[in-house]
Write a protein that binds this DNA or RNA. Structure first.
Ligand SMILES: [Mn+2]
Ligand SMILES: [Mn+2]
Length: 451
DNA sequence: GGGGTCT
DNA sequence: AGACCCCAACGCTTC
DNA sequence: GAAGCG
């Protein structure tokens, strides 16, 4: 809700690194004229490359390093060259490391081996049972909280150490109502995440996480965190990456205990990157973010989503659909990791533009929120490094504690569909009914056709 | 959640 | 000791 | 360069 953005930023340091322009090449002449007018111009950025510390060996910290992208013709200013070499503009110690510093491996100790999730360990809730079913079908060994662990969670008064998945997580303020109208506490949020973990984690594994804590609940101020805080447990693995400001260690969700720590930290929604740590500039998801403006109805969103679907059908692209828990819908196109984020964004931009021309009464390409009234924006600008959407099975900071829930395309015809149809209370039954409808997001590797 | 400062 | 304040992002788009 | 946006 209220976001702590708009903080004064350090003046001239944010100058563009971007020069070379990319344009869709095969547009009709009329479209080209319009595109010029709309300034849909996509820039090829200078990119930072990353390598794993030791290929094939899971490491605590992955190392990102700048590398000159010699394929891009550009004139660099002195300032840009300086920035490229990583002169860190900030004062904190970690930020001053040179980008090419070698990575460190930290032993990840467990207090005990996580127990095998045997049938008797699985809590007798629809969510835990459904998650276990799905995980079994997927043959993943990611497990959720056991029955005894959930009992122990309920036994903690308001603060205490909780052993889950072989880790100790210090939980605090468990009674704090993050969703006051629904009377859902932080304990309820934790209980959801540690149960859905086996279904959810495959979509977050190896994807750097942006966090948006809501310490005062859904009506309070939230703030963004990308760098793993110093007070976070050492056993939470991270991915080290250099952005324009400096080196940061992004949290990676690999196990149930990390979800417990995040939820305790009032991180309500989880925002994973569209790319994975071993190839961070090459996303495996292109996302189409349908954002209704004030005055647009969910029916309108559905109508636009159907057109997106038929466009993708014509292009022979399979895509996955999910509710956002707020008012729009998210479409994920699983792609082969051969396109840069610029190319991914360019594809979605062109798609958005074509659909906007097809249904100008429903779709707007306007940037300013105030001028979008009554229409849907197909937000292609999401396809950027470091920019994220709430991922599948993420809770959203809204009334009822809605969950971003995968749905089948044909469910768009169900008049009972609502953007907040599934919540932390009902997702278990939903999963028991339909299973995990987002599977293909991890297994398909499609090529994007030229538009 | 943590650090600093003021009362 | 407690009250209070501040901080914890970033990259593209548009004017 | 600065404000808008997510
Ligand atoms: Mn959206
Ligand atoms: Mn959006």
């Amino acid at each position: 809700m209220a976001q702590d953005q708009g903080r004064p930023s350090a003046g001239g340091r944010h100058r563009r690194l971007y020069r070379a322009a990319w344009r869709p090449q095969t547009l009709r002449r009329a479209d080209r004229g319009r595109l010029r007018g709309r300034q849909i111009r996509l820039r090829r950025a200078r990119r930072r490359r990353v390598r794993r510390a030791e290929p094939g060996v899971p490491s605590q910290t992955h190392e990102a390093a700048y590398r000159q992208d010699v394929t891009v013709q550009r004139r660099a200013t002195a300032w840009q060259r300086e920035t490229h070499l990583g002169s860190a503009p900030t004062g904190r110690g970690k930020r001053q490391q040179v980008a090419r510093k070698t990575s460190t491996r930290v032993a990840r100790s467990r207090v005990s081996a996580p127990s095998e999730a045997t049938a008797t360990d699985i809590p007798d809730t629809s969510l835990s049972k459904a998650a276990a079913q799905v995980a079994k079908k997927l043959r993943t060994d990611i497990r959720g909280a056991t029955a005894s662990e959930l009992d122990a969670l309920d036994a903690i008064k308001t603060e205490g150490n909780w052993e889950v998945g072989g880790r100790i997580v210090h939980l605090t303020n468990l009674h704090k109502l993050l969703f006051p109208e629904d009377r859902y506490s932080k304990r309820d949020l934790i209980r959801y995440y540690v149960q859905v973990a086996p279904v959810m984690i495959p979509y977050y594994k190896d994807r750097p996480l942006s966090m948006n804590p809501h310490p005062d609940g859904i009506h309070g101020k939230s703030y963004w965190v990308k760098d793993k805080p110093d007070y976070a447990p050492e056993w939470i693995p991270t991915f080290r990456y250099q952005d324009q400001k400096g080196l940061k260690d992004w949290i990676l969700i690999e196990e149930v205990a990390t979800l417990a720590w995040l939820a305790n930290h009032a991180v309500i929604d989880m925002h994973p990157w569209y790319s994975r740590v071993d190839k961070p500039e090459y996303p495996d998801w292109s996302v189409v973010d349908l954002d209704p403006a004030e005055g647009a109805t969910f029916k309108d969103v559905i109508a636009v989503a159907k057109v997106v679907k038929s466009a993708l059908d014509h292009l022979k692209l399979k895509a996955l659909l999910k509710t956002t828990g707020q008012s729009g819908l998210h479409v994920y196109i699983p792609v082969e990791r051969r396109y840069t984020l610029e190319e991914s964004r360019g594809f979605v931009a062109t798609l958005a533009h074509m659909i906007a021309e097809l249904m100008p009464d429903k779709v707007t390409e306007v940037w300013e929120v105030k001028r979008r009234t009554g229409k849907i924006r197909i937000d292609y600008t999401q396809n950027v490094i470091n920019k994220t959407l709430a991922g599948p099975y993420s809770v959203r900071p809204a009334l009822r504690a809605p969950v971003s829930t995968p749905i089948a395309w044909r469910e768009l015809d169900d008049s009972r569909l609502r953007p907040d149809k599934w919540t932390i209370k009902t997702l278990g039954d939903r999963l028991l009914e339909v299973g995990d409808l987002f599977h293909d997001a991890l297994t398909l590797h499609q090529r994007l056709p030229a538009l």
